[in-house]
């Protein structure tokens, strides 16, 4: 079993959606022409991310974010015997350089920066290695993917496959009843909230777009984000008639037909 392929065929948003819904643990490797990235998850939550060429140690991240100066960092590294990030973090806290809250907030925003960047990657290969996690000494975070997917989807630039993902605007939307999928916990912008307020199997996507004054592309983009975040699903609207060509099964008397199916079942079992 493997999950691998090309980002053209399966986007970063779709990969995050898969990891979120299947609550996967492991590391996603993205390999683009000139860069690579690793993103790790535990039980469907984001815990770590690193860009290929970048120094991912906590010291480097804190310097980059301006939380420590180069001089401080050099001094600390030469004075402390510890190597791992966790030990280094403890040292920084104990020596009163930073609080635990500072360190985690800086790390979190560093990881988010990387992850949001990945949503713009459309060319490259991906591979998910289950149960491969960052080295023990790394400090990890714990972030829900729903918000991330919505925020990341806002940054997607290329929408080549949007029509394939949401082919029919006559369809309606409905909230999924999945544990953990709570729209209340998601940070949406006002336009997205407007769309969400119309989510109902009675309203077609087209009607929603009209009500909130969005064009086809704009409504598709918002629906795409909510879909990939696993918060809504596409359903046939209540008002939509069944397809014009009605069931074409031969109009047999139903009892006869059930026995006919039973006969086929017996035959196939005996093959």
């Amino acid at each position: 079993m493997a999950i691998k392929g090309h980002l053209r065929d399966f986007s970063v948003a779709q990969l995050f959606n898969l990891i979120n819904l299947a609550q996967k643990s492991g590391t996603l490797t993205l390999d683009a022409a000139d860069q690579a990235a690793w993103v790790s998850f535990r039980a469907g939550k984001l815990i770590y991310a690193q860009l290929g060429e970048e120094d991912g140690t906590i010291m480097h991240i804190l310097v980059k974010a301006g939380r420590l100066t180069d001089r401080q960092a050099k001094m600390i590294t030469t004075h402390s015997s510890s190597k791992g990030d966790k030990e280094m973090g403890l040292y920084l806290i104990n020596a009163d350089y930073l609080t635990q809250k500072d360190i985690l907030a800086t790390l979190r925003s560093h990881i988010l920066d990387i992850v949001f960047q990945l949503f713009t990657w459309t060319d490259g290969f991906f591979r998910f290695d289950p149960n491969v996690l960052p080295p023990e000494d790394r400090i990890t975070v714990h972030m829900d993917l729903e918000n991330l997917i919505i925020e990341g989807s806002r940054r997607v630039q290329e929408w080549d496959h949007l029509d394939d993902e949401i082919p029919n605007l006559e369809m309606a939307l409905k909230f999924v009843d999945r544990p953990g999928a709570d729209i209340q916990n998601v940070k949406l912008n006002p336009k997205e909230w407007e769309v969400v307020s119309y989510v109902d199997p009675k309203n077609s996507i087209k009607q929603i777009a009209k009500a909130v004054k969005l064009n086809d592309l704009e409504i598709r983009r918002i629906v795409y984000g909510l879909l990939q975040a696993g918060l809504i699903e596409i359903v046939r609207p209540e008002s939509m008639p069944q397809p014009a060509h009605a069931p074409r099964i031969r109009p047999l008397d139903e009892r006869v037909q059930a026995t006919l199916i039973d006969r086929i079942i017996d035959r196939i079992r005996s093959l």
């Binding site: 691998k4 392929g5 090309h6 053209r8 065929d9 399966f10 496959h161 394939d164 993902e165 082919p167 029919n168 069944q242 397809p243 060509h245 069931p247 074409r248």
Partner: peptide
Amino acid sequence: PETFREAMGILHTFRAYAP
């Protein structure tokens, strides 16, 4: 995975022909 999108398309098309 490069065929998944098409598989979905085929599925929707067939569902429309006959439920």
